Structure formats: C-alpha cells, structure tokens
Amino acid sequence: MRLQGIRFDTAEVVEVEVKDGLIASVKPLESAAAQELPWISPGWFDLQVNGFNGFDFNGETTTVQDVVGVTEALYQRGVTHYLPTVITGSLERIKQAVTTIAEACERYPDVCRSVVGIHLEGPYISGEDGPRGAHARTYVRDPNWEEFAQWQEASGNRIRLVTVAPERKGAIAFIRRLKEAGITVSLGHTCANADELAQAVAAGAALSTHLGNGAHTQLQRHPNYIWNQLGEDRLWATFIADGHHLSPPVLKAMLRAKRDQFILVSDSVKFGGLSPGRYSSVIGAEVELHPDGRLTPIDNPLILAGSAEALDVGVSNAVRYAGISWSEAIEAVTLRPARLLGLSGPGREWLEVGSEASFTLFRQPDRQERIRISAVVLNGETKYSFMGGGAQ
C-alpha cells in the first residue's frame, strides 16, 4: 500500500509506503501534487466514547455487537483508536460491560487494534446534583480497590483511564494506587476544593475529564473547582467541542488556558450518528435529537442528555470557535492522547519507519464547514475510503 498526502504538522507532501502493517518508507513529493491530495495524520484517538450509531456501552447489557458496531462506525468519522467508556453502575453491570469489551477484543482483531483500553468514568465520583451529571445517584460511591480489581481482572487489564472525584473518602490513596499500577487518573464529576485537588495532583492525577461540564449550574465566581483545574499546569484536560457542551467563547478561553495540554473528546452516546428524532434509551428515558445535533431529555429541553457528535465535529468546531490551527486541532486528537497514556503505538511515533501504519486522511474545509474524512487506515488496512482518499 502507498499513501500520498500532505503532512498535517509540516504541510510537506509525502508518499508513505506500508508493508505488513508498518511504515516501510516515507518519501517527499513535489509540492505541485498537493492540489489533489488529502491531508494525512496519525489515526485519530478518542479517549471518551460511551456509544455511537445505536450501539451502547452503558445499557442494561453490553453486547459484543455493541463493541464491533461502535468501532466500525467510528472509522467513518476518522477515529482509528478509542477508549470505550463505562460509567457509574452496580458492580455487576460494570463487570459485565468490561468483560464483554474484552471478549470483543479477543474475538475480532480489528476491535483489538482499535480499542487500546477502557475508560472507567465513575462510580467513584461526586454525589451532588450538577457534578454528578447524568450518573445514577444510586450507584455513586467511595473508591474500593478490591471492587476495582475485579473489574480490571474481568477486562483483561484493559482499564487504562479512571475518572474519580478526589473529595470522596479514600480517593487520594486510591489515586496513588492507580498511578503505581500504571493507570492514568483523571479528575472529573467533582466539586473538590483547592486542597483536595492539590492532593490529587500530588498523588498522581494527570487529567481533567471534560472540564467545564459535570459541574453545578451556578458557581461562586472565583475561586471554584473549574478555575482551579484550568490553572493547574500539571493537569491536562479534555474538552467536548460539540457546540453544545461548551459555548464558543468558553471553549476558546479554556483551550487558550491549557495551550498544548488540551485534548478533544467526543463523549458520544448511542444516539450519535442517528437521524434527528425522538428516542427511548434502554433505561426508559425519552430524548430528542435535534437537527443541529443537540440531544436533550423530552421533559427538560434546557439540559443535555449527552453528546450526539463524533470527533470530526469537535475538531471542526475547535478550529471554528477557538481560532486554533488545523494542525493544533489534529494534534489534540492524535499525538496528545497517545502521549498522555504513554502509548508507543498510535500517534506516538509519527511517520517513523517501522512504526504503526494507522492514518486518517482528510480534507480541510473553510472554517464554516466540517472536516471531511477521505480515508482511514488501521495497521496497514483501509477501513474506510471516500472516493479513494489518497490510498493506493
């Protein structure tokens, strides 16, 4: 296989030869060829995916087809690698979900390549309305290492990211233990004070989960837990740039504050990728997916019921609303998430001979349109292609 494209980071025109799933060579091409070629980047990486295209990781029962369905649907949106996100629930429900994800990885090689780990978001989060978000109050609880160990064993040691509220009893010791086990710790769904946040960072927390969301609707002007995390240079942060979770001015200010430590995530749910309309979730909630992509409960249209957009929308919105460059937006869904998790694979060794041949090829529109995915290549195999997409 040979891929021709414009490097997202340097704008150089290159031809990449792929053999046996690895990069065999990278050669420069004449810049005149750029007019007809797509841009090329490492395969995109989403740290937070709850579901997509009708498939759900957080229903009453997670199936292998849910994992396969999400994986295949995300290829069309530019995502080669992601973390299925399992949220707050009973011990049994979380165990069933992570066991099924592990089974899907063992049965399907492509799923195994794409699912580089699991994100456990809860249940060790705030129980307060606002910071708790849509997580079920019934199952929110204090950290329990023995319980977590059951999930990690059931997942085949695939849990790589855990979101926790540091104000929970025992949370600081739990964070320290996760860090020692090589698991990345994120702070989220929290209303921790400055001292609790500082202790969590000192214990090893490295990230803030969808900063600006999962919070009280009204806060003291300053200080508060959003400002404290935003100003903590030792914390990276993920942001949902779907156009609904954060208003454009807020997104712009937050990305500027975090500079090269922001990561874009979708936080998509099962209704992402579906047509506008009214839907019932497996837990009985009625929601409406609006034509503009906003997802709201039928009985309270002023709040959100999750994100219904994939990562391509977030990348486009970050450029449109925050005024950042395309290269910075792409870096925030490729090199940065790989670096955060300490991965040696996707995105970490960009265009080095012998490294993993996983790429997203795309067309850059003007700032008022959405980025267009041309092709997706996973370990040397084309998983999605729109009219060729630069792959040969």
Rank of each mutant, 00 (worst) to 15 (best):
R158W: 10
I159M: 11
L161D: 02
V162S: 03
V162I: 13
V162K: 02
V162P: 01
V162F: 09
T163I: 15
V164I: 15
V164A: 06
A165G: 05
P166Y: 04
E167F: 10
E167N: 07
K169V: 14
G170H: 10
G170Y: 11
G170I: 13
A171P: 01
A173H: 08
A173V: 11
F174Y: 13
R176N: 07
R177V: 10
L178D: 05
L178P: 00
K179H: 15
K179C: 14
K179T: 15
E180K: 06
A181T: 06
G182H: 07
I183A: 00
I183Q: 01
T184D: 05
V185F: 12
S186R: 09
L187I: 15
L187S: 07
H189S: 08
H189M: 07
H189L: 10
T190W: 03
C191W: 12
N193P: 06
N193A: 11
A194G: 05
L197F: 03
L197Q: 00
A198E: 03
A198L: 09
Q199K: 14
A200F: 03
A200S: 13
A203R: 06
A205C: 13
A205Q: 02
A205I: 07
A206D: 06
A206H: 03
T209H: 03
T209E: 05
H210A: 00
H210G: 00
L211H: 01
G212S: 07
G212I: 01
A215K: 00
H216V: 00
T217A: 11
L219R: 02
Q220R: 12
R221F: 15
R221Y: 13
H222P: 02
H222V: 10
H222I: 14
P223C: 10
N224I: 05
Y225Q: 02
I226A: 02
W227K: 02
W227C: 04
W227N: 02
N228Q: 15
Q229K: 06
L230K: 06
L230Y: 08
L230E: 00
G231K: 03
E232G: 04
E232S: 11
D233Q: 13
R234N: 11
L235Q: 03
L235C: 04
W236S: 02
A237M: 08
T238S: 07
F239P: 00
I240V: 15
A241Y: 06
D242Y: 04
H244L: 13
H244Q: 09
H244I: 08
L246F: 14
S247I: 04
P248Q: 04
V250P: 00
L251G: 01
L251Y: 03
L251M: 13
K252M: 08
K252V: 04
A253R: 06
A253F: 15
M254G: 09
L255F: 13
R256I: 04
A257Q: 06
A257F: 12
A257P: 10
K258W: 09
K258C: 12
K258T: 14
K258H: 11
R259F: 15
R259D: 09
D260Y: 12
D260T: 08
D260E: 08
Q261V: 10
I263Q: 01
L264M: 10
L264T: 04
V265T: 07
D267A: 11
S268P: 08
S268D: 09
S268C: 15
V269C: 15
V269R: 02
G272V: 01
G273S: 09
L274K: 07
S275M: 14
G277Q: 09
G277S: 11
R278Q: 14
Y279D: 04
Y279M: 06
Y279P: 05
S280A: 10
S280D: 07
S281A: 12
S281T: 12
V282P: 13
V282M: 15
